[in-house]
Design a binder for these strands. Structure first.
Lengths: 248, 248
DNA sequence: CGGATTTTTGAACGTACTCAACGACCGTGG
DNA sequence: CCACGGTCGTTGAGTACGTTCAAAAATCCG
């Protein structure tokens, strides 16, 4: 129960749902074949720890399905989420032995793993992989920097709205197109996880979600499902000036 | 006065002070020669804006000397620093036309610029450059994530101490080795810039620096020069558990 | 010196935190 | 079936930390 389930039937890269978004996105058929040889699948249950910060890490890999988080913890227990990993996101750093952060499965999670040594060697001979990894890392750096603005300068209400906008955006790019207005989505995190993401307490998160509901910015169905009657309004609440983009 | 000074005598890469740390670190003599052809130097005065977020950017480059900052601004003026660029750090993103952030020269600044198009083409044919850029981007991502912990979870006092630890560390790796204790350094930022970095107001920055001085954690000479009688103590104040590392 | 800029310090305020209790939901077992 | 415990979420009251507004002090440079 506490061990990852290793009895997953290996899947063909050709039918992989993240084939064209993950680190292997640019690989051609030959390159995929080499990857097939060093890859294996692992699945984790919701709540399980994938790896602890500081532990030796003998693999890197991609999230195939489910959601994982990267967190950092101080001695006294204060924790800050530093990454939210959705399908196609990459985990691990080639050229480093230990994990820098805690990686936790927030939902049931399936990962496509590559043994680290062979992967590193492959990276040297296969520019397509390194190129794609650079692109993905630059995107993550941008996301981290946007998050620094949220953490450093936004109010609690703006932080909650910003989180919802981020989830909305990632849903929009990942899934199919959504109807223009009346967009809805599921919060993939508990109140506590949201608090760790936003640098707040879970009580403040709860209060601000209630406030947004009271002010008709959002509408809740159950604890997790959010309906947004007016996306523009939510963007205003988030303090994002760029109201255009993919949601117009 | 407001235009960058372009009348800099081109320098030989062989004598470049950041030769072995910048994006060109892994290049061999042949590769350097190609770089020499597309590079040029630019210098900026303290306080000048190198580029505004959203503006077209026709170059990428490295900081040769001086200090630059990356900042993000909200409509109402709240600003958050998202990057502190020291010599050898890379500016710009290959494959993107517009600047994502404001880049400002905090001190007098010299940059080694590469025209973007030729640089991008060079990256495809020269694995050494892409490899080094990936490495540097991963390092920046780590730094950004460490900063997320500072912004999200640390107190004002811890934030100030953390900033000093970061400057200390970067000084230590950049410059020569320092004496074990009694380390000293210059704050490269105004109180306001520190506030933008730390997600605080400049008044709070000033108060906390005064408090650290009153408590003998630091000793000030003038406004900018800081002496640290006990580095371990400063690390404690920063909330960093890892007291070992390069400073022991 | 005079004027602008940066920094320090003070007093009052407000947002988010802390501590605490309560409520909703869910699976388990009597 | 309902009582029970556990997890997750909500709400309340009081507090603390950092902000805001204001003024004075220090520094820089003409």
């Amino acid at each position: 129960m506490l061990q990852p389930d290793l009895s997953i039937v290996p899947q063909d890269c050709g039918v992989c749902p993240i084939r064209h978004r993950a680190v292997c996105a640019r690989c051609d058929a030959d390159e995929l074949q080499i990857l097939e040889e060093i890859k294996y699948y692992r699945s984790y249950e919701a709540g399980q720890t994938v790896i602890w910060a500081g532990d030796r890490m003998d693999f890197v890999g991609s999230v195939v399905s489910g959601i994982a988080t990267l967190t950092q913890t101080m001695e006294d227990g204060r924790t800050q989420m530093v990454g939210l990993l959705l399908p196609s996101d990459f985990v691990g750093r080639p050229g480093r032995d230990g994990a820098a952060y805690n990686v936790m499965a927030t939902s049931d999670l399936v990962m496509c793993c590559f043994r680290k040594k062979p992967f590193e060697k492959l990276m040297e001979t296969t520019p397509h992989i390194a190129q794609r990894l650079l692109q993905m890392t630059l995107d993550e750096l941008d996301a981290a920097r946007e998050w620094m603005l949220v953490l450093g300068r936004k109010t609690a209400r703006e932080k909650i709205a910003s989180l919802m906008v981020i989830i909305l955006r990632r849903d929009a790019t990942l899934n199919l197109a959504q109807p223009r207005d009346r967009i809805s989505f599921d919060l993939p995190l508990t109140r506590e996880a949201m608090a760790d993401y936003l640098g707040l307490t879970l009580e403040t998160v709860s209060r601000q979600i209630s406030a947004l509901k009271r002010d008709k910015v959002i509408h809740l169905e159950g604890k997790r499902h959010v309906m947004v009657p007016d996306v523009g309004r939510l963007l205003e609440e988030a303090g994002d000036d760029s109201d255009g983009g993919m949601l117009s």
